[in-house]
Design a protein around this nucleic acid. Sequence first.
DNA 1: GCAAGGTC
Length: 681
Amino acid sequence: MVTKVLCVAEKPSIAKAVANHLAGGQVQVASIQGNLYTKNYQFSYDFPTWGPCSVTMTSVAGHLLSTEFVAEYRRWGSCDPSALFEAPIETYVEDDKKAVAANIERQARYHQILYIWTDCDREGEAIGAEIRTVAAQGNQLFRQPDKTWRAHFSNIERAHIINAARGPVHLDEAQVNAVTSRIELDLRIGACFTRNLTNSVKAMLQRHAGAERTQAISYGSCQFPTLGFVVERYFRVRNFIPETFWSVKVMHQKDGIKVNFNWARTHLFDRMAVVILFERCLTARTARVTKVQTKPTSKWKPLPLTTVELQKCGSRFLRLDSQRVMHVAEQLYQKGWISYPRTETDKFDKGMDLRALVQKQTQGGAWAPFAQNLINRGFSQPREGRNDDKAHPPIHPVNFVMPTSLTQEEQRVHEFVVRRFLACCSQDAKGSKTEISILYGSETFNASGLVVLERNYLDVYPYDKWTSSQDLPNFREGEVFEPTEARMHEGETSPPGYLTEPELISLMDANGIGTDATMAEHIAKIKTREYAESRPRARQTRRDNEEEEYEPDEAAEPDAGGRGRARGRSRARAARGGRGGANGRGGGGGATTGVLEFIPTTLGVALVEGYENMGFEISLTKPFLRKEMELKMKAICEGRKTKADVVQETIEQYRGVYVQTQQRLDSLRAAVRKYVFQEDG
DNA sequence: GCAAGGTC
């Protein structure tokens, strides 16, 4: 008698792909009752471990079980919020998951082996355990430890999947425990602090505004640090004090070309020092060329596309906020045009046939000739980033679709994904860079020029800019000349801008706030909770000596006109919120760049400052607590801690914080009065 | 009416 194996994937797409690979064409598909997306695939397969088997492959759609407080604690008034630290909780199947759970429960009765094919990450491991729980409800057999197995795979290439099918392993209970700990802690802490915060502040707001605030004032380990980033930058902008600086500017005209030399010291904040150095230049009268160097340079093609990068690029180049980009990408994925859009991986698996994917893009679209050229001769293996989530490849096009059959927004996101992928498979751009240094008095000044020789990937990836500068005249080392113009320049540092969406995403990513799948939701949440607002950033013109920034082509957009305030900061400096750059004068125009910037509401500011002023050692509005949780989960995974340890010690920690927030509630109330009610003192 | 994490 053949063994019957029930395979369950984390999502329908994986079930379909795996079934097709294993079945080799001989597969029967059946719909399940009550769910449009989940299918059961039937086929035969000879697993080395179990011999010839009759296989049913199906899927869930993410987590199958939900966790909640038992009924008596669900009503807000039913208990003191702090009771939620220890209130009993239960796991159950949510209504919209019932059909999928019933399918697994029923199928379990007819099978002897449960083979889990969820993503190979922590959440996938936990989802696998949930599937096992539900299967065991249908068939007691699955309470036995050796009846449930798990496939290990990191992509859905045929050979890889077939290889995975040969080596089933056990579920990693440590990873499962790490996730169930997180779920329990997020629930208890989130619910407790949210109810308490709402009780403490809502009545105050209503008394003042007279209006009903129907919304809770929520606390969450991701949403609060997200708000914290926005507020921190807001204060840095508001508290910014401009500083005057001085510099020396040197221009020399030769062969009809004006060359601006940049002072090696950039600028100094001491006027007298600059006066002295400037006078030495004038006294010297002539400058001597100390270096003329021309060397090849290149601009690297981009890394394979991750979710975080897609969201950042969406904000910068496509004028779509992160939630919108993800929604559109999700649709493109479901229609089968692009690969799974939630991935942290920025390197392609060696075994992937990338040329075949490029080939598909030769069928049409503006990029078709470029793709054809890659096939003919230009193909180059993509660069490899350092991230691999072991669950999904970088985002890439999987099939050709005529752009005209897509909606406007889909076209923009799809075009970006295709162009990014083709850029990854191209050669770096090549150029020649000339650097000239002069010694003028005691000071060194530099000028550089770039000639782009081969555009390569740039031809398909207009989101990157790399253009030849004006040709430099010929200088020779040792040459002496009297500069055409030398003058002292006075400037002022300018404040950093408000936090933009790409910057916020970078900060969340760097600090482990949220995951690729949830970051956009956390950003949306601080908006719906009315903690922050976003608006398109006013357009600002670029400062002369601004380093290269990679901006979308804005040529088609109306110019702000005039001498708008210098953009004044490189992206990197802006992210650090460091000292601003040189500042010209004049206001920004009315036009916008489209990139969203975030400004906290008065409530958002009050919440952050109110909690900050409570003076806890570890701040609720900074990312450290979330980082700590991440470390604790890791400790569980590595067997250094148990779930019970982690849950207990974390709850004790927050219980302490809770008691203190109660004692120092005045701080929060004062902040609300100060910012929301705009009262003095 | 609460969280964050999956996913359709």
